[in-house]
């Protein structure tokens, strides 16, 4: 099939950037979206032009690097699928495809489709961890965790930190990402000791990094390639409310 691509080209962080049009000819339906871009880049390189810069790493849907908004939807039109797992059979001959980077103040564009997502790391550094002693490995069954709790934490842990939730959010809020981390750790015994400190620090980091506030649009859940539920945002809100209840160590 032959396609027409409208791709965001931006030389660097300071450049204004604009959409440029490229033909993508003889695209096989079995190609992934990134392989299709590889072919287009091959053509650009051969004709002496600058190839389209885009992020990618594992190409198996788990690393969260491929950050592209395709025809207005983060990761393209297929539900619960990252760009690398999106295949060209989803498109028809003659289609026009708009490819843009994540757009948010907290995700400055580095070049073309590549954005700097370090702000998510800063949120993680603020509290997305549990402190534990080093030394011998604990016995795997020493700490009993009910199966539903483990499943709940695992559902939250599915988040790959790609940033699609922020790209989809009309407010550029990082609440779904943050809530997945807060909920995962708050649900498990290992995360409980630091639960209060964590939710306050991580939600503060959201604002400090220039993300917006959550106003319950739920676009994040719809865009998430891992299907992270907004119920984790409700859980984060519960964790926040809990910090208002004084504990015996507060007084």
């Amino acid at each position: 099939m032959d396609l027409t691509l409208h791709v965001w080209r931006q030389k660097g962080p300071q450049d204004k950037g604009k959409l440029e049009t490229y033909p993508a000819k003889n695209v096989s339906p079995d190609m992934s979206f990134l392989e299709m871009l590889d072919e287009v880049n091959d053509g650009l390189i051969k004709s002496g032009k600058d190839p389209i810069a885009f992020d990618h790493d594992c190409r198996e849907g788990i690393c969260g690097m491929c950050s592209q908004v395709i025809n207005g939807r983060p990761h393209g039109k297929q539900e619960k699928t990252t760009v690398c797992q999106l295949h060209m059979r989803q498109y028809n001959d003659g289609d026009e495809i708009f490819i843009e980077p994540w757009r948010a103040k907290a995700f400055p564009i580095q070049k073309d489709l590549i954005v700097d997502r370090s702000s998510l790391d800063v949120i993680m550094q603020a509290g997305g961890y549990t402190s534990c002693h080093t030394g011998g490995v604990d016995d795997a069954n020493a700490m009993l965790i009910p199966k539903p709790t483990a499943d709940y934490a695992m559902d939250a842990a599915e988040c790959i930190g790609c940033g699609a939730c922020i790209a989809a959010c009309p407010n550029s809020s990082a609440m779904l990402f943050t809530s997945a981390k807060v909920a995962q750790l708050a649900a498990l015994p290992q995360g409980k000791p630091e639960a209060r400190k964590r939710v306050l620090a991580m939600t503060q980091a959201i604002l400090d990094e220039g993300f917006g506030n959550c106003t319950n649009h739920y676009e994040c859940e719809a865009a998430c390639p891992k299907g992270i539920s907004v119920k984790f945002i409700a859980k984060l809100n519960r964790e926040y409310l809990k910090t208002m209840i004084p504990t015996s160590t507060d007084a």
Partner: peptide, 13 residues
Amino acid sequence: ATPDNYAIQKTLV
């Protein structure tokens, strides 16, 4: 927090 719009702006839900 959202200084730039997408060329194609879509919302789903």
